[in-house]
């Protein structure tokens, strides 16, 4: 085939660009169709992130006048903002674990027992509208004259001590990402044949043995993908600590970044915090996509 094409090409050597375009028409029109999307991403996502890295290597707002290149910002983060970084990772990690503990049985029952799945799915929409309404709602829930007050009084808990505390922040973060965890584990579990569990039981395994030796290993990829996804979402947590947390929870990087960048105009330090957060988030997402092979299998 190639042999029969080559003489033709030799016959017309002058038609350079035009013939190349004609031969690769499919490729050219495909690239043309991709151009708007590519330009949007390039201008509003790639360029800003590259800029972020460059600004993070200059002092305060000097980048835009006479750039003073320095790694001072990263040193500041290592010296003074390590607690903030740990707080972020700690909150995100703990809430993801909470999601796993709560979400695994939820996903299992949902996949195996529940017939009213549409109803469950409809209620799961509310957390997905965003952490802001969630935090506001929990704020009202824990107010001294709120609906939970009688129950809390009965248990001898002061509602206001729950209002601004670590547990309520964690709980709000966990509810926000629980749908993602349930979705991931549910997808993995619905691929596991119920026959396998029945077989294990018939062969004399106790329920916890069936879970630990059969069910869990078969759904491990879903569990890992879910954990990483929840962790990635919760790394950028902003509003839950602000509305429900104490000063200790409000150290999270996103809040510190807003303070430095938008209020104090210390773009260098804010950009450096952004780079740290971005590196963490991209690493986690990359791992999670490798494990779940992405939504598109691409």
């Amino acid at each position: 085939m190639a042999g029969s094409v080559r003489p033709l090409a030799v016959e017309r050597p002058r038609a350079g660009l035009a013939s190349w375009l004609r031969e690769h028409r499919q490729l050219v029109s495909g690239l043309g169709l991709l151009l708007p999307a590519f330009l949007t991403s390039l201008l509003l996502s790639v360029v800003p992130l590259v800029y972020l890295v460059r600004v993070s290597l200059t002092r305060e707002a000097t980048f835009f006048f006479t750039a003073e290149h320095t790694v001072e910002n990263y040193r500041t983060i290592a010296e003074r903002y390590l607690p903030n970084l740990w707080e972020t990772i700690y909150l995100a990690g703990l809430s993801s674990l909470l999601d796993l503990i709560v979400g695994y049985p939820f996903a299992y029952i949902l996949v195996r027992k529940v017939r009213y799945r549409d109803l469950v799915r409809a209620t799961m929409m509310f957390p997905l509208f965003g952490p802001l309404y969630l935090s506001l709602g929990m704020h009202y829930l824990f107010l001294p004259n709120g609906p939970l007050a009688p129950a809390l009084n009965l248990l001898g808990i002061d509602g206001t001590s729950l209002l601004y505390s670590l547990p309520s922040v964690l709980f709000a973060m966990a509810i926000f990402t629980l749908p993602f965890m349930v979705m991931n584990i549910g997808a993995a579990l619905s691929n596991v044949d119920p026959m396998l569990e029945e077989t294990a039981t018939c062969l004399g395994a106790q329920p916890w043995q069936t879970f630990w030796r059969v069910l869990f290993p078969l759904s491990r990829s879903g569990v890992l993908a879910g954990l990483l996804m929840c962790f990635g979402w919760n790394l950028g947590v902003y509003v839950q600590p602000l509305v429900l947390g104490t000063i200790s929870e409000q150290r999270v990087l996103a809040i510190a970044l807003y303070q430095k960048g938008v209020i104090q105009f210390d773009y260098g330090l804010a950009a450096a915090m952004g780079v740290v957060l971005m590196a963490l988030a991209f690493g986690v997402t990359w791992l999670s996509l490798r494990l779940s092979r992405g939504a598109l299998g691409a």
């Binding site: 970044l257 950009a271 971005m278 988030a281």
Partner: peptide, 10 residues
């Protein structure tokens, strides 16, 4: 995949 705060500041 970019956290909202990072996207905001960039």
């Amino acid at each position: 995949y970019t956290p909202a705060a990072v996207m905001g500041i960039s």
